[in-house]
Amino acid sequence: MWGLMIMAIAVIRFPGTNNENDVMRALGTIPGAEAQLVPSRLGSAALKEADGVIIPGGFSYGDYIRAGAVAAAGEIMEGVKELANDGRPVLGICNGFQILTECGLLPGALLPNTSARFVCRWVYLRVSEQTTAFTEGLEDAVLKMPVAHADGNYYCTENDLTVLNLHGLVPLRYSDENGETVPAVNPNGSIDNIAAVINEAGNVMGMMPHPERASRPSLGSADGLAILENFVRSTKC
């Protein structure tokens, strides 16, 4: 009944996820993107045919224990891990990023914002000069997207940080509109202004800013669409 055989991109909805329709809508504007909403209760079996997975933002399970913690322990994440190990692209946005760190697919943790308050605002992002599957064609660019989160303060151990920097695993950093990654523009206290992290294999990325909310000029920016377009392209490789 879910027509899983034709699925290309699985957009996972946990109870409490609330950006799934935004992501679906943004994907809907990308030619050739086939996406399907997958409720988490369907489990890992529902991901068998997926060419890629997006875990959208929101408050999965109310973020009741810790942002993303309950979702990360869900059975469907076994399926996500399998796909990831298979080299399929996995993108976690906001709560999705939190889920990916909680389940160990990405290093580090997302701690409460330095302000200890939710923060919703537009930010500029400096794209790393190293090419990744998700930022291809955007190298060194400055993007504008909104953030909206209470726990976006990226933290990792010194060792992890060294590896991230050494291997170019930080595709996005908070910057000013000229691309300077100065502390003053850091919205949440993230270590080294980190806004996104990618795994060593280059197929799993988590990002706090919302590309789907910057997908039409009338929303204030369409910069996010480029990242989603890259994601769609990488599902077809």
């Binding site: 609330n18 950006n19 919703c120 909206a148 909310r213």
Partner: peptide
């Protein structure tokens, strides 16, 4: 105050809070 409110979820917000009025599509 309003930076603590999610103003963009649902991707319909044309004008954020802080202007004379907020605008939704």
């Amino acid at each position: 105050v309003y930076s603590q409110y999610d103003q963009h979820v649902q991707s319909n917000t044309i004008v954020d809070i802080g202007e004379n009025a907020g605008v939704l599509e």
